[in-house]
Design a protein around this nucleic acid. Structure first.
Lengths: 295, 295
DNA sequence: CGTAAAAATGACTATTGAGTCAAGCACATT
DNA sequence: AATGTGCTTGACTCAATAGTCATTTTTACG
C-alpha cells in the first residue's frame, strides 16, 4: 500500500515536468525504482494511474477547505477567507500536483476522466455557492453564477501564480484578498447597479453534482465523518467548547506530520461526552486508522 | 498560399477535437485531401505546424482589439469595452482555434513555442496596461498588476465559457460587463481600501515584451501600418472626419467577408488627402494585397 | 507539343512506448 | 528443507506515427 503512494508521487513529479504524453511508464518505473511490469500490479493502465493521481490529491487539497467550512465558530466572512487560505496552503504543499493539473493535458478524454472533471467542478461550485449564501443570504441567488464564475477564475489564476512564482505568495493574505474582491463585486450586484450575465439555464453543465439535500453527496467517508461530527456538536448544549476541541483536531490534521498523541488526546476529550462519542469514534478511525481502536 | 491556409484550418479543427498528440499528420492530410508528404512542403515538422497555427490565429484575434484601441474617437471606458467586444467577436469566429488553445496540450515545450507563449502574454499585459492607464491615469500604477491579473483571469474564463457554451454570450454585453467589473475593483483600489498583493518584482516574468517606447515592438507589418495611419490622422486638422473613415475601414475589415469595393472606396477618400495618402496606401497594400496598387 | 521544373504521392523506415507474460524470486508456513 | 503463494522482472509483441524519398503527376512556358 505504500509503494502505490510512491508510484503516485513519482508519477506526479514527472508528469508535472514533462506532461502526460511525454512521460512513459518506463520512466515512472525507473524513477520509483521498480520494473515497468510492477506498475501494472497497482494500476491496470496508464489512464487509471492518472485518474488515481487526481482522486488522491484532489481529495487532499479539497478536504481541508471542506472541514474548515463546517466550523461554525468563525463568522462567514472570515470563514470564507480561512477556507481559501487552507486550500492555498494545500496547494503550496502539493505544488507538483497543481503543476500537473494546470498543464491540463492528459489521456484522450474518456468517460472516467470526464466524469471526474465534472465531479470536481460540481464540488467547487457547490462549495462556492454555500459560502456565498452564508455571506449574503438568499438574495444573492440571481447573481450567484456571475460571482461564482469570476471567483473561480480569479482563484484558479492565483493558484497558478503561486505554483509558478519564485517568491511565494502568503496563503493567508491571498485568502483575505480574494474574499475582499468577491465582496466588492457582490455588494455592487446587491446594490443593483450591475446586471447579471449568467443564469441557471446557461450554467446547467456546472450545476450538476449539487443536489437538494446538501450538495455533497459524492463525498468520501472521511468528509462525511467530519460532517456528522460537527452536526452532532452543533446540537449539543456545550457546543462552543466541543467546537474548539474539534477545530484543534482539524488544525492538527492539516499539518504535514500531525502529532498522533495530541490527536488521540483531543479525541478522548470528545469521546468522554456520550452524545458525541460515537461520531468522534468514527472520525478517529478515519484519521488514525493503523492502530485502530484499542479502547 | 491558399493550401497552406486550408491545412492550418483542418489542423485546428482536428486538434481542437482530439488534442495535439492524438492527431496524426496522416489524419490532417486526409482531412485536407492531400497526401502526408505534401504537408511537409509547407511545414517542416508537426511542431512548426502548430506554431504556425498559433501565429496565424493569434494575430487574427488580437489585431482587432489593437486597431480599435488606436481609435481616439471613443472615450476610454467605451473604447476598452469595445476592444473586449471585438476580441470576443473574433473568438466566436475562431471557436475551434480557441478550443485548441484551451486544451493547452501541445508539443514538448521547445524554445520556439515557449518564446511564442511569452510574447503572447507580454502582448496581452501591455495591452491591458495601456488601457488601465488611459482610464485611470498614472495613479493606478501601484495596483496595476493586481488589476491586470484579475482582469486577465476573468477574461480568459469567460472566453472559455463562450467557446464551450451552447447558448452564445453576446460579445457586446460581455465586453461591457467585464469593464464594469474591472472598474469596480479599480475604484476600490484607488479609494485605498484594498492593498495590492502583486508587484513589479514578482511579476517580472510577465512584464517582458513591454518596452519603453510603446510596448508594441514585435508587431506585424499590418498593425504597424494601422498605427502609423492613425498617427498621421491625429496630426491632421480635419482629424475627426478622417477618423470616421478609418473607423469604417476597420469595421469593414473585421467582417468575415469584407466588401473589397467598399474598402477601396474608403481608402480612396483617405488617399485624396496628401498628408495621409502615403500611410493609407501602405495599409491598403497590407489589407488588400492580391490586386495590388494599380493607381 | 515537348520539355523542364515544381508539386504531390504513398510506400517505406525507424522509433517510441503501452501492455503482456513466462520465468524467477522472496518469504511464510508447515 | 519443502512447498506454495504472490510479488517482481524485463524481454517481447504490437500498434501508432513522424518523417523520408524515389517515383509519378501537374503545371509553366518556349
Amino acid at each position: 500500500m505504500d509503494k502505490r503512494k510512491a508510484i503516485l508521487e513519482a508519477a506526479v513529479e514527472l508528469i508535472a515536468e514533462k506532461g502526460y504524453t511525454h512521460t512513459s511508464m518506463q520512466q515512472i518505473a525507473d524513477s520509483v525504482g521498480v520494473s515497468k511490469g510492477s506498475l501494472y500490479t497497482f494500476f491496470p493502465s496508464k489512464e487509471d494511474l492518472i485518474i488515481s493521481i487526481y482522486e488522491h490529491y484532489q481529495q487532499l487539497v479539497f478536504e481541508r477547505a471542506f472541514v474548515v467550512g463546517l466550523d461554525g465558530n468563525l463568522p462567514p466572512y472570515e470563514r470564507f477567507a480561512k477556507q481559501f487560505q487552507v486550500q492555498f496552503e494545500g496547494i503550496l504543499e502539493y505544488k507538483s500536483y497543481m503543476k500537473m493539473h494546470m498543464r491540463g493535458e492528459s489521456a484522450q478524454s474518456s468517460e472516467k476522466l470526464e466524469g471526474m472533471g465534472h465531479r470536481m467542478r460540481g464540488r467547487l461550485f457547490s462549495w462556492l455557492e454555500r459560502n456565498l449564501i452564508d455571506l449574503y443570504g438568499e438574495e444573492i441567488a440571481p447573481y450567484k453564477w456571475d460571482l461564482m464564475w469570476m471567483t473561480q477564475s480569479i482563484y484558479t489564476s492565483y493558484t497558478g501564480l503561486m505554483v509558478t512564482s519564485e517568491n511565494e505568495l502568503a496563503p493567508d493574505k491571498l485568502g483575505k484578498h480574494l474574499v475582499r474582491q468577491i465582496d466588492i463585486l457582490a455588494k455592487d450586484f446587491l446594490v443593483g447597479k450591475s446586471t447579471p450575465l449568467l443564469d441557471d439555464v446557461m450554467m446547467r453543465p456546472f450545476s450538476v453534482g449539487m443536489d437538494r439535500e446538501g450538495a455533497f453527496t459524492s463525498f468520501e467517508k472521511r468528509e462525511n465523518a467530519w460532517k456528522s461530527l460537527y452536526e452532532s456538536i452543533h446540537q449539543h448544549k456545550q457546543s462552543h467548547y466541543f467546537l474548539e476541541v474539534t477545530d484543534r483536531i482539524s488544525e492538527e490534521s492539516r499539518k504535514s506530520n500531525p502529532d498522533e498523541l495530541v490527536m488521540r488526546g483531543l479525541f478522548q476529550l470528545l469521546k468522554s461526552e456520550e452524545e458525541i462519542s460515537e461520531r468522534a469514534q468514527l472520525l478517529e478511525e478515519q484519521l488514525l486508522p493503523e492502530t485502530g481502536s484499542e479502547h
